[in-house]
Amino acid sequence: MTIRTNAAIAASLAAITWAAVPPSAHARTDAARVVACPQVFGHGGYPSGSNPWDRDKIRQPNNVRALDDQKAWGADGVEGDVQLTRHGTKAVMWHNTTTNGLTGTRKNITALWWTAGSDNLRDRRVARGPYQGEQVYTLRQWLDHVRSRGLVALLEVKPEARGALSDPTYATAAWKEISDPIVERQAAQRILVYSKDSWIQAELARRHPGLLKGSEARWTDGVGWEEPPPAWSGNVNRWQQVLNEAPKSVMTNYPREYRAWLAGKCG
């Protein structure tokens, strides 16, 4: 038998083997190679560069209108920012160290009472941007609305909270303000937590070990945010790079555009 004949037989056997496998099995094999679609966490966008607070348009999903928008844009979850008012007496949703972006005299969030005084935090309103007129919400109020919209809650405890959380006089009550709303809801609602402050992060790991963000909500944008917002298309190369690594979830300032870009690229 010649080498050529052997080659012909091998080719015939390969064709028979392929034909013998049902088309559905081939489809399953091809589908197995497709990257799983990540969950999409919406972030609000905060300017980079010098004096970013002067250009901040308060787009963070810390209020109910912003949460509703994130849901409409296709987000599966949202990142919110937890602050503590004076002496840790109320956990609230706000991203800036000060009341910059809110009505009233500018003051540190940690210097204000929630309801007491004429310059209290509860009575202030967002002063600019797409959510102008919105109020500041408590952590409990925010978590309840996140749940009502079917979103996953990702809580960043801001470094400014460390003052009350580490003060022996206020720490017990301050931690209850953050931990109790989480514990009360975690059985019925997916909640993740983290902090960029290493001490707070260590405490979160001790108090809420099963809820740590870990590798969830990996940052996927490649272009720094600015006002007005830069074109979403500048992120595409980074989006593809991260998607190729098959993350379970990603975080982006462009949930609507990311969701549209993702179509057909994962399964």
Rank of each mutant, 00 (worst) to 15 (best):
A246D: 14
V223E: 04
R238Y: 05
E257L: 07
Y254A: 00
N237P: 15
W261H: 05
P230Q: 08
T252D: 02
P255D: 09
R218I: 06
V236K: 13
S233A: 14
Q240K: 15
D221Q: 01
E226C: 01
V223K: 06
M251I: 11
P247W: 02
S233C: 04
R256K: 15
D221V: 02
V250K: 02
A246W: 10
E226Y: 13
Q241H: 09
E245D: 14
K248D: 12
L262G: 09
L243P: 04
G234V: 00
S233G: 07
W232C: 02
G224T: 06
G234K: 05
Y254E: 00
S233P: 01
R238C: 05
V223R: 07
Y258E: 01
M251D: 09
G234C: 07
Q241G: 12
R259W: 15
S249V: 07
D221K: 04
L262Q: 01
M251H: 01
A217H: 11
G224K: 12
N237H: 08
E245L: 09
T252M: 06
D221S: 02
R218T: 14
Y258G: 00
N244Q: 15
N244K: 12
A231F: 05
A217M: 10
A231N: 12
L262S: 03
W232F: 15
V236L: 07
W232S: 07
E227A: 10
S249M: 00
P230G: 04
L262M: 07
P255G: 10
V250A: 03
R218M: 14
W219D: 10
G224M: 08
N235K: 10
T252R: 09
M251F: 00
N235T: 02
Q240Y: 03
V236G: 07
R259P: 12
W239H: 04
W232L: 02
Y258T: 04
P255A: 03
W219E: 12
P228A: 04
E216L: 08
W239K: 06
G224E: 12
P230L: 02
V242F: 13
W225K: 04
K248C: 00
